[in-house]
Design a protein around this nucleic acid. Structure first.
Lengths: 108, 108
DNA sequence: GTCCACTACTCCGTGATACCGTGTAGTGGT
DNA sequence: ACCACTACACGGTATCACGGAGTAGTGGAC
């Protein structure tokens, strides 16, 4: 699938929130997970900027743990604000995707 | 629904293409149509920049016609390149929305 | 007959976001 | 010693939707 960059704007952050919400994890693993899920072109740099933003916005709780396999990992977990943000994201996604699907169906 | 701005990136242009593809129309009417369809906060300025971009990228055929109700209207219709771009857009949308829905369902 | 509302188009600057390339580090295998 | 893989960080770039302001044309209210 060719370039999805623009379409990912606004949704990729939500995807990261969802992944963090389902289990405490770290940047490198999140990137691999997204790649597996079909977001093939997403690279680490992108995920790290998103994680830094989540941290800055107070949506996650961060814990640094040694890895035994490379440098220490920064584990991310959602806090209450993060869970709320995730719910908002899904509400927006439902809203948007329903409108667009309607438009596709001939949309009157 | 609160701010969808970021989520619309990359999709709004496709929506405009779809509307133009279903009937030859002009900027002001496209904006009203989108508002009706639930894209409530989309404003004229946004649509005009998209229309200028479509024109610049050679995806539309433009015809100016007098209105009898205000200034003349610029009618837009898809050309072959535009129809191709529209098909690409829907393919991307299908791809992306299926991945995201899968992620939402617990996505492993 | 002057003001206002509605239609219709244009331009410019702003902010948010994903991407890219590069760099730094730690561990383990050959 | 070198290389591959893991893991994080940073700085610059392009794209896009938005906001605001401006310009025009028509017709109705008073």
């Amino acid at each position: 699938m060719d370039d999805l960059t623009e379409m990912l704007k606004g949704t990729l952050e939500g995807c990261v929130l969802q992944i963090i919400g389902s289990e405490e994890t770290y940047g490198y693993a999140i990137t691999r997970r997204l790649n597996e899920l079909g977001f093939a072109d997403v690279v680490e740099g992108t995920i790290y900027t998103i994680l830094l933003r989540l941290e800055r916005n107070g949506l996650v709780q961060v814990t640094k743990r040694p890895s035994g396999l490379g440098p220490p990992r920064k584990f991310f977990a959602l806090n209450d604000a993060g869970r709320e943000e995730l719910a908002t994201f899904w509400a927006k996604w439902e809203y948007l995707s329903s409108r667009i699907d309607k438009l596709k169906e001939g949309g009157r």
